[in-house]
Computed example of a mutant assay.
Amino acid sequence: MRRSVELQIITEALSKLGPHTPAARIWGRAPGATAEQGADGNVWAGDVRDIALHIVSRLYGRPSAAAAASPLAQAEGHKRARDIVGETGVLTGAHEELVSAKWHPLRPGDLVHVAFEQAGEMAPFGETYAVADAGGGLMSMKLLAHTARDEDADSMVGCFATEASDAPLYEAWFEAGPQRLVVVRDGLVVHNGPGA
């Protein structure tokens, strides 16, 4: 299972070390190195993301490339196991990951793409939503396009559309999962779940 929340927290913590934030690389001295030995051969450097991945792998196991279950599916698994701490931890972690994202909340003009894997006889497909102002501080998410087959379109397509919501991405974030979402703002990808 991918440990995206833990990886993000550790990456952010490491990038905020020291006076130069955000840090891109971390430098250190090898354990047991003394000043008399000199700096040659005793100094190491690593990218923040690589070091965070190393820490997450040591703590939780190596993240897999396979698609992780959505936060809602993970919470259901904990619920079946009667693990209330795990259930609330997954839901709270997913909420924090969303609301702490630099691009959150969505803005009018944002595009949200959801990628669905194959499920049974249903072929993989994607759908794209446009975010618009619905008035009164609310936002809408309207389906723009999809790649579903005609026989699958009636049952699945457009399930995350909303007419007016204060958090239009919330349902897709929890049900599909952040790893299946791409958010585009002003032509730039601000969240690339599949590419994370």
Rank of each mutant, 00 (worst) to 15 (best):
M1H: 14
R2H: 12
V5E: 02
E6G: 09
E6I: 01
I9E: 08
I9L: 10
I10C: 04
E12H: 10
E12L: 10
L14N: 02
S15I: 05
K16V: 06
G18P: 06
H20N: 14
A23M: 02
A24I: 15
A24T: 15
A24S: 13
W27N: 07
G28C: 09
G28N: 07
R29M: 13
R29K: 11
G32S: 06
G32R: 09
E36K: 12
G38S: 05
A39G: 01
D40A: 09
G41R: 08
G41Q: 06
V43G: 00
V43P: 00
V48N: 03
R49T: 14
H54D: 13
V56T: 07
L59G: 08
L59A: 12
R62G: 02
P63N: 03
P63A: 06
S64A: 12
A65V: 13
A65T: 13
A68M: 13
A69P: 06
S70C: 07
S70H: 05
L72A: 07
A73K: 04
G77R: 04
G77Y: 01
K79M: 08
K79V: 02
K79W: 08
R80A: 09
R80H: 08
G86V: 01
G89T: 01
A94Y: 03
E97S: 09
E97I: 05
S100A: 10
A101E: 01
W103Q: 00
H104Y: 14
L106G: 05
R107I: 09
R107P: 00
L111G: 06
L111Y: 02
L111H: 06
H113L: 15
V114L: 12
A115S: 15
Q118Y: 04
Q118E: 14
D133K: 12
A134C: 05
G136W: 09
S140I: 13
M141Y: 05
K142N: 14
L143K: 13
L144N: 06
A145K: 15
A145M: 13
T147Q: 11
T147S: 13
D150K: 14
S155K: 14
S155A: 15
S155M: 15
V157R: 09
V157C: 14
C159G: 10
T162S: 09
T162P: 01
E163R: 11
A164Y: 04
S165V: 04
A167D: 11
L169V: 10
L169F: 06
L169K: 03
E171V: 15
E171F: 15
W173S: 07
E175A: 12
G177H: 01
P178T: 08
Q179H: 15
Q179A: 15
R180M: 14
R180T: 15
L181H: 02
G187V: 05
G187R: 05
V189E: 04
V190I: 01
N192I: 11
G193C: 11
G193N: 09
P194A: 10
A196R: 12
